[in-house]
Simulated assay, not measured.
Amino acid sequence: MTSHGPVLPIWSCGGCDLPWPCQTRRRELRAEYADAPVSLALYLGAYLVEAAEDMPWAPAGALHRRFIGWTREPPEVQQRSTATVPPAPDRNERHQPG
Rank of each mutant, 00 (worst) to 15 (best):
R80K: 14
A34E: 11
A58G: 00
G45Q: 01
H64K: 02
A62T: 11
E76C: 13
R30K: 09
P19H: 07
A31D: 11
D17Y: 00
R26L: 11
S81F: 05
L63I: 04
V77A: 15
R80N: 04
E28G: 03
H4P: 01
R27W: 04
M1V: 04
R80H: 10
E32N: 05
S3N: 08
I10V: 06
A46M: 09
E93W: 11
P9I: 06
V38W: 10
C13T: 02
R30W: 06
R26T: 00
Y47L: 14
R80P: 02
P21W: 03
T24S: 10
P6N: 09
L44D: 00
A52S: 15
T24F: 05
A46P: 00
R72Q: 11
A34K: 09
V49Y: 12
P19N: 08
Q96G: 04
Q23R: 07
T84H: 01
P9S: 07
A36K: 09
A60M: 08
R66C: 04
S39L: 14
N92D: 13
T82V: 04
P86W: 13
P86D: 06
G98H: 14
T2G: 13
Y33H: 12
D17M: 05
C16E: 00
W11N: 05
A83L: 14
R72P: 00
A60H: 08
G15M: 01
P56T: 09
P86M: 04
G69L: 14
A83W: 02
L63F: 11
A62W: 13
F67H: 02
L48T: 05
F67I: 08
E73V: 07
V85Y: 05
L42S: 08
V7S: 03
R65Q: 15
D17L: 13
W57R: 11
R25W: 02
